[in-house]
């Protein structure tokens, strides 16, 4: 059975995964925390915690709340910063078989370009995932990912700064996600991942105050899967670059749905919080499905529901 997938076919370095199951940024730390718990080397790839130029402290407590079939979070990109990542994490990753992709986030276009430069040719890093859900402080705080122009500008700057494979992760909090996807593809993104969390809120009726310290946060988990699936369906029909489906994937059946609407790979996120080995369970379920259905190559399943 062939489950391998090339996520950067237009890039001379390429980004070849042994299988399509990736852990989503922010839900699997740096991967290192889980290496003694199960065989993480079997995963398709690991996307690490969103990383900024300087360490970030994140948002005030509380930062997480469960909602119906979902999770609201406002972690606020707490992270160790790119220098500590290069010094402490990348050397460990360099000895791994599983590719590690670094998720990068910034408040200016220059932040993203500098991050890509710092991470260029660092051993242990196979590619970048650009988080464009951050507020663009130089343009008044609207998120980069909400307009095709700003999203393309970030993509162009990152591509100029690195020859490593670049995945751009789209936010669903925009008027026209297809237009944003087409703009980042045009700007040179090697692949597109979607969706990031949907903006959401929850109130504690006893205190009559928002539950999250940041007032609102991002919704993830099974609750958002149908929304994510539709957006992946739309985007996969509009761009030629590989699409990575993400949003509420908890089981292999969820993952197969995304593949069947056109995703070349999938990211497992919130389910990692429920079960650390959720991504591996998804992979094993896909393998079982292919065996049961007599599918020899995963590529045969991509987009089958579109026909």
């Amino acid at each position: 059975m062939n489950l391998s997938v090339q996520l950067a076919p237009a890039n001379t370095r390429g980004l070849l995964l042994a299988n399509p199951v990736i852990t989503a940024s922010g839900t699997f730390g740096y991967g290192i925390e889980y290496q003694d718990l199960f065989d993480i080397q079997r995963l398709g790839a690991i996307v690490c915690k969103g990383t900024t130029l300087e360490p970030w402290e994140g948002n005030p407590q509380p930062r997480i709340a469960e909602t119906a079939s979902g999770v609201l979070n406002s972690i606020g990109l707490q992270n160790i910063g790119v220098d500590a990542l290069i010094d402490e994490k990348a050397p460990i990753w360099a000895g791994w078989r599983v590719p590690v992709i670094v998720n990068i986030a910034g408040e200016t276009i220059d932040d993203y370009a500098r991050l890509a430069e710092r991470l260029y040719n660092v051993a242990g890093i196979s590619g970048l995932e650009v988080n464009i859900s951050c507020p663009n402080i130089s343009a008044g705080g609207a998120e980069f990912g909400t307009t095709p122009e700003a999203a393309a500008a970030v993509t162009t700057a990152v591509k100029k700064a690195t020859s490593q494979p670049v995945i751009v992760k789209l936010t669903p909090n925009t008027g026209d996600i297809v237009a944003v996807a087409m703009a980042v593809a045009e700007a040179g993104a090697d692949a597109i991942s979607l969706i990031n969390t949907l903006k959401g809120m929850a109130i504690d009726v006893r205190t009559q105050r928002p539950i999250l310290g940041n007032l609102y946060g991002g919704l993830s988990g099974p609750a958002i899967k149908p929304v994510a699936l539709h957006m992946v369906y739309q985007v996969a029909g509009a761009v030629r670059v590989p699409v990575i489906g993400c949003g509420g994937i908890s089981t292999s059946s969820d993952a197969l749905e995304f593949i069947m609407v056109g995703a070349s790979a999938v990211q497992v996120g919130t389910a990692n919080l429920t079960s650390p080995r959720a991504a591996l369970d998804v992979l094993e379920g896909i393998e079982q499905f292919m065996q049961d259905e007599g599918v020899g190559d995963l590529a045969e399943l991509i987009g089958t529901a579109r026909e």
Partner: peptide, 22 residues
Amino acid sequence: EMRMGCGMGTCYACTIRTRQGL
């Protein structure tokens, strides 16, 4: 007691600031 996500130190949901840092 704090609202937690992963329980394993990876999701940063239960971070507090202490005199020894985050």
